[in-house]
Nucleic acid binder design. Structure first.
Lengths: 160, 160
DNA sequence: ATGCATTTGTTATATCATAACGTTAATCGT
DNA sequence: ACGATTAACGTTATGATATAACAAATGCAT
């Protein structure tokens, strides 16, 4: 619930707030938010869009922060592992988490026109899928939920 | 609903039945179920597991049906496009459709121990995700729903 | 049989991701 | 503070997944 992102919002504040919250959590959990990791997080927060690892790597390279794929992938692995970012499987791309810190099972709404990604919440073990799983005796541990469609802005916009 | 696959079933009949149904549908829709396409479909039906494009290509190569990646990818594209198979995005792999012909929005239960894949049904525009989408003014066109966990057989089995 | 669309075979290359390993830097117990 | 241990980084190389492009073959309607 409480999707944000397709409607305009205080983006600078959104970035700063998320960064601050994540910094605090890293400090508390004794996680090293190193320069590369921090920069990758900033890059992801900049957009509410999914970026490929090589897009991120290009930006890092421009800034002299690293030039080889493992640099980007390692930073992304760190962010994903600790819930500060998510991978969009459909796109082989990554987004900053919209609810960092909170324990959550993310679901995504991906606009096929503007590529904006909004993070929503689900409880994968419940609902229709949960019923199917229960019937089959299947224990759901986590779920990838990625909906593709058209966002409000793009639906209203001029280009159909 | 009506998940099948983790419990034992008449597998030979399951393959033959699906093949026959798909052949009929191709005939009716004037789709060319060429030798390569048909063989790829058979390979997928053989397992209720997801196979990578290159796994399939290896088998085709052994049988003299094609040796270069586009051969496998084109056959898979055909099968996916017409709903005879699905791609599991999490795994970059493909499974035969369990409900060919029927108009459906597939969801998958993937066992992380035995790699078995069961296809269930969802209505992506409804339920929790649908509510989020409605709130955000987002129009869902299709959704990737892939749950990972442990199937009944593996949960009962000896290895934890 | 002819013409058009679809499929195939093949080469080449794009894109996404990780293994491996030596070096540097942070952390921790003493 | 010191050395031991663990974590992160830089780099090279390679693996895995996927598609572009184009020529040759095939199917199919007229």
């Amino acid at each position: 619930m409480d999707p944000i992102g397709f409607s305009s919002h205080d983006h600078a504040g959104c970035i700063a707030g998320n960064l601050a919250r994540i910094e605090a959590r890293c400090k508390q959990a004794k996680l090293q938010l190193t320069p590369v990791r921090r920069r990758v997080l900033e890059i992801l927060l900049q957009d509410h869009r999914a970026l490929g690892a090589y897009d991120i790597l290009d930006r890092l390279r421009d800034e002299g922060l690293g030039s080889q794929p493992p640099v980007a992938y390692r930073a992304l692995d760190f962010l994903v592992k600790h819930g500060f970012a998510h991978k969009i499987e459909r796109m082989n791309a990554f987004v900053a988490c919209a609810h960092p810190g909170e324990d959550h099972a993310p679901a995504f709404l991906i606009c096929r026109k503007c590529d904006m990604v909004v993070e929503a919440q689900t409880e994968p073990a419940r609902g229709q899928l949960g019923s199917s799983a229960k019937l089959a005796g299947f224990l759901i541990e986590r779920a990838v939920v990625e909906a593709e469609g058209v966002c409000l802005n793009c639906a209203e916009g001029p280009q159909s």
